[in-house]
Design a protein around this nucleic acid. Structure first.
Lengths: 180, 180
DNA sequence: TCGCACATGTAACGCGTTACATGATTAC
DNA sequence: GTAATCATGTAACGCGTTACATGTGCGA
């Protein structure tokens, strides 16, 4: 039995929502789980090819004559089983790397202004993410109200909202102290 | 001019606090910035060797006769300049990968109990991290009260505290809804 | 006709982890 | 005596990003 990596499971998961092309998966990952997951092109297409080769997904070329290439991948029963088994395993915690925090930790080596700028940036990013997630939440509730996925998708969005609210209040409290 | 990577800057930053051995750097990274940064052995020692080779750090073997090997690295002026320059650059945001959230997003493919377990784990982890960070905060305030690093170190710790408080309240609200 | 979005892929390179190799010292 | 910790390093492998290569369809 071949060993699958995280990219493979992310792809299987996406295909559990509905059949899609590689390009669609790419977009979906950016739009819906971009807040806590990412894949790059160089991983995605080879992953799809391997999943297809081993029967976790099937592939149909859905190009009308003369149309552009379009391969639609569909999850097989084998793929569903594999996904279910992976979902039952305790998630591995992988190392976090937050460069902004690293710089701040060494902040005494530079000027207060530079550190302040970095925190300002973080505040701005948190605010932007919050706006985006809040809009997404609203949209999801109206557009997916009958979907079995909705409760789980809301949990993920709410996690993002809470994380960014925390970031925002953290950065604002530092900025306010700095101005005094 | 040679191109340094993140590991090199993390090492330079650690040596800006005080001269240390590779082993000390390893420990310090785990203990003090482990909350938002990590390095592995396979990166650390080669990074130190390269920094030494190019004059960013100097190295003195501080082994008393018959004692175990112990190389103490010290930041040079060139190293300090390099660190300062890097600190002034806007931090790059690198892709986040949170496997627990990924599994939750695909939660509709498995049982509520399995998802509940994952969230329980997250709650437990957040609680443990909070306890650790709170203790660290207290210790820092008393032990480093005259250090120029203290304000920045507190910002980092407070960031961790706020993140984990958000995680905790998020997981608890889901668990409470689940029990109803 | 130009540029953008659609669409699929490969190659090269560097990053990061794990396991391995070695050996001294200290605590039980 | 044996296990844990101190201490330094290398090798192998897989992961992940970036840049490249190629071509279609559509709107301004």
């Amino acid at each position: 039995m071949i060993k699958l990596n995280k990219t493979h499971y992310a792809v299987l998961g996406m295909l559990s929502i509905c059949p899609m092309s590689g390009y669609n998966i790419r977009q979906m990952i950016k739009q819906s789980i971009g807040n806590f997951w990412s894949e790059s092109d160089g991983q995605l297409y080879p992953a799809l090819a391997l999943l297809n080769k081993h029967g976790y997904v099937t592939c149909k070329s859905a190009n009308k004559p003369g149309a552009r290439e379009n391969k639609i991948y569909t999850l097989t029963d084998k793929g569903k089983d594999e996904l279910r088994e992976w979902l039952a395993l305790t998630p591995e915690t992988h190392s976090v790397r937050n460069e902004a925090m690293l710089k701040l930790f060494f902040g005494a080596n530079t000027t207060p202004e530079i550190n302040f700028d970095h925190i300002e940036n973080l505040r701005y990013q948190a605010k932007a993410m919050l706006a985006q997630l809040t809009a997404m939440r609203k949209q999801l509730i109206s557009e997916e109200k009958d979907s079995a996925h909705l409760p789980y998708w809301l949990m993920c969005i709410d996690h993002g909202i809470q994380m960014n609210e925390a970031r925002l209040s953290w950065s604002e409290s530092i900025i306010n102290n700095f101005k005094k």
